[in-house]
Protein backbone atom coordinates (compact mmCIF):
# COMPACT_ATOMS: atom_id res chain seq x y z
CA UNK A 1 0.00 0.00 0.00
CA UNK A 2 1.36 3.31 -1.00
CA UNK A 3 -0.25 6.37 0.40
CA UNK A 4 0.50 10.03 0.33
CA UNK A 5 -0.80 12.83 2.50
CA UNK A 6 -0.66 12.92 6.26
CA UNK A 7 -0.08 9.62 8.06
CA UNK A 8 -3.20 8.53 9.94
CA UNK A 9 -2.63 6.92 13.35
CA UNK A 10 -4.88 5.58 16.08
CA UNK A 11 -3.50 5.70 19.62
CA UNK A 12 -5.23 3.64 22.28
CA UNK A 13 -5.15 2.66 25.94
CA UNK A 14 -6.53 -0.87 26.11
CA UNK A 15 -7.73 -2.29 29.42
CA UNK A 16 -8.13 -0.50 32.74
CA UNK A 17 -4.72 1.20 32.95
CA UNK A 18 -4.89 4.91 33.76
CA UNK A 19 -1.26 5.86 33.01
CA UNK A 20 -1.64 8.17 30.04
CA UNK A 21 1.30 10.54 30.38
CA UNK A 22 3.31 8.71 27.74
CA UNK A 23 0.57 8.24 25.18
CA UNK A 24 -0.47 11.89 25.46
CA UNK A 25 3.11 12.93 24.76
CA UNK A 26 3.19 10.67 21.71
CA UNK A 27 -0.16 12.09 20.60
CA UNK A 28 1.22 15.61 20.70
CA UNK A 29 4.49 14.70 19.00
CA UNK A 30 2.77 12.89 16.12
CA UNK A 31 0.37 15.77 15.60
CA UNK A 32 3.23 18.25 15.71
CA UNK A 33 4.89 16.14 13.00
CA UNK A 34 1.83 16.65 10.78
CA UNK A 35 0.14 13.29 11.30
CA UNK A 36 -3.60 12.89 11.80
CA UNK A 37 -4.04 11.17 15.14
CA UNK A 38 -7.11 9.78 16.84
CA UNK A 39 -6.82 8.90 20.54
CA UNK A 40 -9.38 6.59 22.18
CA UNK A 41 -8.94 7.76 25.77
CA UNK A 42 -8.73 5.35 28.70
CA UNK A 43 -10.29 1.88 28.91
CA UNK A 44 -10.73 1.11 25.24
CA UNK A 45 -11.57 -2.52 24.49
CA UNK A 46 -9.64 -4.34 21.75
CA UNK A 47 -12.89 -4.64 19.76
CA UNK A 48 -13.46 -0.90 19.98
CA UNK A 49 -9.88 -0.19 18.98
CA UNK A 50 -10.02 -2.37 15.87
CA UNK A 51 -13.42 -1.02 14.87
CA UNK A 52 -12.20 2.55 15.21
CA UNK A 53 -9.03 1.76 13.28
CA UNK A 54 -10.99 0.38 10.35
CA UNK A 55 -13.60 3.13 10.36
CA UNK A 56 -10.96 5.82 10.54
CA UNK A 57 -8.86 4.09 7.90
CA UNK A 58 -5.64 4.44 9.86
CA UNK A 59 -2.28 3.15 8.73
CA UNK A 60 -0.92 2.52 12.21
CA UNK A 61 -2.18 1.69 15.70
CA UNK A 62 -0.15 2.54 18.81
CA UNK A 63 -1.07 0.85 22.10
CA UNK A 64 0.12 1.84 25.55
CA UNK A 65 0.13 -0.31 28.68
CA UNK A 66 1.86 0.13 32.02
CA UNK A 67 -0.32 -2.27 33.98
CA UNK A 68 1.08 -5.61 32.90
CA UNK A 69 -1.97 -6.47 30.83
CA UNK A 70 -0.22 -5.95 27.48
CA UNK A 71 -0.06 -9.66 26.67
CA UNK A 72 -3.83 -10.07 26.80
CA UNK A 73 -4.83 -6.83 25.14
CA UNK A 74 -2.10 -6.44 22.52
CA UNK A 75 -2.60 -10.02 21.39
CA UNK A 76 -6.35 -9.51 21.09
CA UNK A 77 -5.94 -6.36 18.98
CA UNK A 78 -3.59 -8.21 16.64
CA UNK A 79 -5.97 -11.19 16.42
CA UNK A 80 -9.01 -9.04 15.65
CA UNK A 81 -7.11 -7.08 13.00
CA UNK A 82 -6.19 -10.31 11.30
CA UNK A 83 -9.79 -11.51 11.57
CA UNK A 84 -10.91 -8.31 9.85
CA UNK A 85 -8.27 -8.72 7.18
CA UNK A 86 -6.62 -5.46 8.16
CA UNK A 87 -3.13 -6.91 8.27
CA UNK A 88 -1.54 -3.95 6.52
CA UNK A 89 -2.04 -1.75 9.59
CA UNK A 90 1.29 -1.16 11.31
CA UNK A 91 1.19 -2.01 15.04
CA UNK A 92 3.39 -0.50 17.70
CA UNK A 93 3.30 -0.28 21.46
CA UNK A 94 4.95 1.12 24.54
CA UNK A 95 4.94 1.23 28.32
CA UNK A 96 6.27 -1.07 31.01
CA UNK A 97 6.74 -4.14 28.87
CA UNK A 98 9.26 -6.71 30.03
CA UNK A 99 12.08 -7.47 27.58
CA UNK A 100 11.14 -11.13 27.63
CA UNK A 101 7.70 -10.25 26.17
CA UNK A 102 9.03 -8.05 23.38
CA UNK A 103 10.00 -10.87 21.00
CA UNK A 104 6.62 -12.47 21.39
CA UNK A 105 4.85 -9.20 20.59
CA UNK A 106 7.09 -8.77 17.55
CA UNK A 107 6.09 -12.21 16.34
CA UNK A 108 2.41 -11.30 16.41
CA UNK A 109 3.01 -8.20 14.33
CA UNK A 110 4.20 -5.40 16.60
CA UNK A 111 6.75 -3.46 14.61
CA UNK A 112 8.16 -1.54 17.57
CA UNK A 113 7.81 -1.81 21.34
CA UNK A 114 9.03 1.40 22.94
CA UNK A 115 10.44 1.15 26.46
CA UNK A 116 10.56 4.00 29.01
CA UNK A 117 13.19 6.50 27.90
CA UNK A 118 12.31 6.44 24.18
CA UNK A 119 12.59 9.86 22.55
CA UNK A 120 9.59 11.30 20.74
CA UNK A 121 11.75 11.86 17.66
CA UNK A 122 12.46 8.16 17.43
CA UNK A 123 8.75 7.29 17.30
CA UNK A 124 8.04 10.00 14.70
CA UNK A 125 10.92 8.93 12.51
CA UNK A 126 10.11 5.19 12.74
CA UNK A 127 6.56 5.83 11.58
CA UNK A 128 7.57 8.28 8.88
CA UNK A 129 10.35 6.17 7.40
CA UNK A 130 8.12 3.09 7.33
CA UNK A 131 4.89 4.66 6.08
CA UNK A 132 6.29 7.45 3.88
CA UNK A 133 9.69 6.14 2.80
CA UNK A 134 10.03 8.47 -0.19
CA UNK A 135 9.02 11.68 1.53
CA UNK A 136 11.18 10.89 4.56
CA UNK A 137 14.21 10.52 2.30
CA UNK A 138 13.61 13.91 0.81
CA UNK A 139 11.85 15.20 3.94
CA UNK A 140 12.79 18.43 5.64
CA UNK A 141 13.59 20.29 2.43
Amino acid sequence: MDRSGPIRVLLAKPGLDGHDRGIRLVLRALRDAGMEVIYTGLRATPAHIVKAAIEEDVEAIGLSSLSGAHETHFKEVSRLLEQEGATDVVLFGGGIIPQQDVDQLRSIGFEWIYPPGTTLDKIVSDLTSTLRPTSSRSGGE
Binding site: G15, L16, S67, G68, A69, E71, T72, H73
Partner: peptide, 10 residues
Protein backbone atom coordinates in the same frame (compact mmCIF):
# COMPACT_ATOMS: atom_id res chain seq x y z
CA UNK B 1 -15.20 -9.67 31.62
CA UNK B 2 -13.94 -6.09 32.17
CA UNK B 3 -11.23 -7.52 34.44
CA UNK B 4 -9.85 -9.83 31.75
CA UNK B 5 -6.05 -9.69 31.70
CA UNK B 6 -5.85 -7.30 34.65
CA UNK B 7 -6.43 -9.50 37.69
CA UNK B 8 -3.59 -9.37 40.21
CA UNK B 9 -1.32 -7.42 37.84
CA UNK B 10 -0.66 -4.10 39.57
Amino acid sequence: PEAFGEVGRV
